[in-house]
């Protein structure tokens, strides 16, 4: 039987890699490997997962240097020479082992006014969004984001600029500025400038790594244009 050599991050912000030998199975995912280690080799290993089928995004980790959903990553795809290095997501505080604290990630969603703000009450009729309207078409892909943090973890600008809101929060803001029902007039100013969309270098790592093949880069580019037009007109 083939054996995988697996290095797993242990500890918090400071720590070390611990090596494990894991039997190689057919159609084995990286999440299977982590689960094997915890259940058969070291029950003190901490990691996070929920759905196991690529719907929740909670099993995101750094696998051989790249952020990935471990449940949707086959070992065969990433383990060259049967070696794996598994670490927590980058750009986030480490709680323990493979578990990160997602608070900064979601705090930036809040800072980007990522909350829908409607103008109707429960007594009003539904406000309709025409599916084929241009504004709705602009966010057709962007609304599929599930907030897993892969893009945030992969973004170099986040690592250079701690204030930068990051691809996911900006993508969320882009969906809302194009939502005809939303009434928040201050969102564009909140996501513009040095800590917002204009800090993006268009390196597109977020787009390359997004497990749902979304393009936060395109959303950010849209925000840049809208914010520049608003700034020229003195609206922000």
């Amino acid at each position: 039987m083939t054996v995988l050599q697996v290095k797993v991050w242990r500890g918090g912000e400071s720590g070390h890699y611990q090596e494990f030998e894991v039997p190689r199975f057919e159609s084995q995912s990286v999440l299977d490997v982590v689960t094997y280690i915890q259940r058969s080799l070291d029950p003190t290993l901490s990691y996070r997962f929920a759905c196991r089928v690529g719907m929740c995004g909670s099993c995101a980790m750094t696998v051989n240097g790249k952020a990935r959903w471990t449940c949707r990553t086959h070992v065969a795809k990433v383990a060259a020479a049967d070696r794996l290095e598994i670490a927590p997501l980058a750009n986030l505080p480490v709680v323990k082992d493979l578990v990160t604290d997602m608070s900064p990630f979601f705090e930036k969603w809040a800072a980007a006014h990522g909350r829908f703000q409607g103008g109707r009450t429960r007594r009003d009729d539904f406000e309709r969004v025409p599916p084929d309207s241009p504004q709705r078409g602009l966010v057709d892909e962007a609304i599929e984001c599930i907030g897993c943090g892969i893009c945030y973890s992969s973004c170099d600008v986040v690592s250079w600029n701690a204030d930068y809101l990051g691809p996911a929060a900006l993508n969320r803001a882009w969906t809302l500025v194009n939502d005809v029902r939303d009434t928040d007039q201050t969102r564009l100013a909140a996501v513009a400038g040095d800590a917002g969309c204009h800090a993006c270098h268009t390196q597109m790592t977020c787009t390359e790594r997004c497990p749902k093949q979304l393009s936060p880069t395109a959303s950010i580019a849209g925000l840049k244009r809208l914010a520049l037009a608003a700034a020229l007109e003195g609206e922000i």
């Binding site: 513009a192 400038g193 917002g196 204009h198 840049k224 914010a227 520049l228 608003a230 700034a231 922000i236």
Partner: peptide, 10 residues
Amino acid sequence: NTRTQVLLWG
């Protein structure tokens, strides 16, 4: 301010 930052980007 934010407006100046955006104008600089432009």
